[in-house]
Design a protein around this nucleic acid. Structure first.
Length: 484
RNA sequence: GGUCCGGUCGUCUAGUGGUUAGGACUCCAGGUUUUCAUCCUGGCAAUCAUGGGUUCGAAUCCCAUCCGGAUCACCA
């Protein structure tokens, strides 16, 4: 019988999840869901020095936001727990003892300074440092509190990686490495293998920085006589300069930063999944369901990809439009926290109307703040914006003033303030003033909003109300005459 | 330095022996929207890292070189 697919995301709680490492959560999730298997969240918290309070919550929050639900792990439990490595020490000790019994692990009380000396010596003599060349002759019986070291028996290993293909690890890649530290906690190198086997994990999906350690891991699977899982090593995501892998040290933003900047989780998931993966077609927009259906491990790119925020923003614009068309209520809900503080006293109904005329100009939800402020408060009159406009540059201030004056007079006559009536009035005005559309409508648009973008004029005017429209036009007329 | 991985438009990529090397983002131009943005159409843009082979034919197969990245912890 074929084994049930089990994948996992196993972050260490040392801070937020950034763009560079979230793919190692997305891909295992997709693999598990596609196969109808399980996706486990495991917290690798054995490094007490780098442990950050609250980091687990941050991880949970990020995964939830992206829509990556897990079947076992913090918050949901499961039969293979605990899901925090610090709570699993008995399991590691048990497996460590197996290795001691088979002669493949030994207690190593060599002081760090001594190891440092060996390393220096090897470096000075110009050959690679391998601890197994300095293995102590006599070792005490192991007990918790002593470092436990793997005893390498180097071999040539071959293995298959779903992304990288068939690979070899020579003897020089295998060494005596620490399994359990002096603080009684296991190292990643040991713990992840024990956890994976005890949790029946079938696919190890992680960043390719672990590739050079594969010799040691393969040796461990071998010594423990456990079956190797399927290996999937993901290429790195590079920062904007393209020269370095994205990392917190170099200011990589957290996934939730993008949420706060108005990126939709659907867009983020879509973007990240397609950074270094594609289905071979020209499709660009993928829903989570599309991804679950179409994702294939063997189509993951081998080369590192650069993170391009511009494309993310474009994709987000696509998703905002898609969401408005398919589920406007949901878009309104998501937009809720992004409205300008000036809008706090505005009814949801009015906000929804504004959204319906502005949504196709939004690239991020955060654009809402700057792009809709003039609906709530009178904008500051900025005559330069008016006078520098490409259609109005040639006009004198007097001409501009007359034009706006004419607009006021015309709009005053509109009784029933509907977009249709406004449109009709503006069209008549076009004929009466003998001007071209850009020349007439640009100053009106600018006078009403003083914003770089605004929706169609009649709709904007309707939402603003007749009184506000007339007041703003008059304010600009006054400003122009003061200027003269 | 040793080991490992990689290398197609500026960026993300399609491509597995025969293609005018295709698409997307960005940028530019035109059009629609009576303005801006959206949207549509078109354009710029890769001598497929370089040099050798193999072959009638190579981005695709082989070798070498170069360049880039990762990793060499009682971190993960």
């Amino acid at each position: 019988m074929k084994k049930k697919v089990v994948t996992r995301f196993a972050p260490s709680p040392t801070g937020y999840i950034h763009i560079g490492n979230v793919r190692s959560a997305i891909y295992p999730y997709l693999v598990a869901r596609q196969a109808g298997g399980k996706f486990i969240l495991r917290i690798e918290d054995t490094d007490r020095a780098r442990y950050v309070e609250g980091a687990t919550e941050l991880i949970v929050e990020t995964l939830k936001w992206l829509g990556l639900d897990w079947d076992e792990g913090p918050g949901v439990g499961g039969d293979n727990g605990p899901y925090f490595q610090t709570e699993r020490t008995d399991i590691y000790y048990e497996w460590g003892k197996k290795l001691i019994a088979s002669g493949r692990a030994y207690a190593d009380t060599t002081p760090a300074e001594k190891i440092g000396e060996y390393r220096e010596k090897a470096k000075a003599e110009g050959y690679p440092f391998l601890y197994r060349n300095y293995r102590p002759a006599e070792t005490p019986e192991w007990e918790v509190g002593m470092p436990l070291r793997f005893k390498a028996e180097p071999k040539n290993y071959e293995y298959h990686d779903e992304v990288m293909g068939d690979l070899k690890m020579g003897e020089e890649t295998q060494d005596d490495f620490i399994l359990i530290k002096a603080d009684g906690l296991p190292t990643y190198n040991f713990a992840h293998i024990i956890d994976d086997v005890t949790m029946d994990v079938t696919h190890v999906i992680r960043g390719q920085e672990y590739l050079p350690s594969m010799g040691n891991y393969l040796a461990l699977y071998d010594a423990l006589q456990i079956e190797r899982p399927i290996f999937v090593h993901l290429p790195h995501i590079l920062g904007p300069s393209g020269t370095k892998k994205l990392s917190k040290r170099d200011g990589a933003k957290s996934v939730t930063n993008y949420r706060d900047e108005g990126i939709l989780p659907e867009a983020m998931l879509n973007f990240l999944a397609c950074l270094g993966w594609n289905d071979g077609t020209e499709q660009e927009i993928f829903t989570k369901e599309d991804l679950i259906e179409k994702f294939r491990l063997d189509r993951i790119q081998r080369a590192s990809a650069r993170f391009d925020e511009q494309k993310l923003v474009w994709l987000n614009g696509q998703w905002i439009r898609k969401l408005f068309v398919e589920n406007p209520e949901e878009l309104h809900r998501r937009a809720h926290e992004f409205w300008d503080e000036y809008a706090k006293d505005t009814t949801d109904e009015r906000k929804n109307i504004i959204m319906s005329i502005i949504y196709d100009r939004l690239k991020t939800l955060a654009d809402l703040r700057g792009m809709t402020r003039y609906f709530f408060v009178d904008p500051e009159v900025d005559l330069d914006m008016l006078l520098q406009n490409k259609f109005l540059k040639k006009m004198s201030e007097e001409e501009l003033q007359n034009l706006l004056q004419a607009a006021v007079k015309k709009l005053e006559t509109v009784e029933d303030w509907t977009p249709e009536n406004i449109r009709t009035a503006l069209n008549e005005l076009l004929i009466e003033t003998k001007t071209k559309p850009p020349v007439l409508f640009s100053p009106i648009r600018i006078a009403l909003s003083f914003a770089p973008f605004s929706p169609a004029l009649p709709e904007t005017m309707e939402v603003l109300s007749k009184e506000v429209v007339l007041a703003r036009l008059n304010a600009v007329i006054r400003a122009l005459s003061n200027e003269r």
